[in-house]
């Protein structure tokens, strides 16, 4: 565990806590894409299958996996049941089959081993890389976002971004490279570049997150 990896994981943890805080305090899931959140549930369930296969890594690893599965399911519950009226499906219109289909095809072609667990793992990596697209698409459509929502997105974007120096560090420290994770991670981080530009130039200067018309 190096500092980049730890900061990345903490950033991921923080993003979920920020999102939960936003939903609980405003009693609303306005501005949050249900589709993106549902994709994260699929990502975590397909990636963390190893929890149930007895591949023990560490207490940290198991606790984080359980937290990500549990919190993502809880967020879906909040959006779909508890605060259902505050979610507007009419602006959450990205077609998820354009993300799930290609991710599945890629996973069938590019994986480390032709086993169900490895194919699902690769699928979860590809799907995670693009799962934010319905959310970013929604932001693009509405052209604005609550500040707390932008902090959520910034923490979530920083998470995979911080994995990049972690991979570079690991290449030099123990010679390991995971090309599937690295390529998908670069794509995932790349998707946030536009968002980060506006976040740094507007939100962190105390202005509202607004896209030019």
């Amino acid at each position: 565990m190096n500092v980049f990896r730890l900061l990345g994981d903490l950033s991921h943890l923080a993003s979920i806590l920020i999102l939960l805080h936003k939903i609980q305090t405003t009693r609303s899931c306005r501005g949050i894409s249900f589709k993106t959140q549902a994709l994260y549930v699929v990502v975590f369930l397909t990636r963390y299958l190893d929890l149930f296969l007895g591949d023990w890594v560490s207490l940290y690893n198991t606790a984080m996996k359980l937290f990500f599965i549990g919190s993502s399911c809880y967020i879906l519950y909040l959006m779909k049941l508890r605060f259902r009226p505050t979610h507007d499906p009419a602006i959450d219109t990205f077609r998820v089959e354009y993300l799930v289909g290609p991710s599945l095809i890629l996973a069938l072609i590019f994986n480390y081993k032709y086993t169900l667990v490895e194919i699902l793992w690769a699928f979860s990596i590809y799907l995670e890389a693009v799962a934010i697209m319905p959310q970013l698409f929604m932001l693009q459509r509405t052209g604005e976002a609550e500040t707390i929502t932008t902090h959520y997105l910034a923490a979530l974007g920083a998470y995979r971004g911080l994995y990049i120096p972690n991979w570079i560090y690991r290449y030099f420290s123990d010679g390991t490279v995971d090309p599937i994770a690295v390529i998908a991670g670069l794509v995932q981080t790349g998707l946030y570049l536009d968002f980060f530009y506006v976040y740094f130039t507007r939100v962190l200067q105390g202005q509202k997150f607004e896209l030019p018309a």
Partner: peptide, 10 residues
């Protein structure tokens, strides 16, 4: 055996 190089990442 071929497989993932890294199994501890999240």
């Amino acid at each position: 055996a071929r497989g993932r190089a890294v199994k501890d990442e999240l």
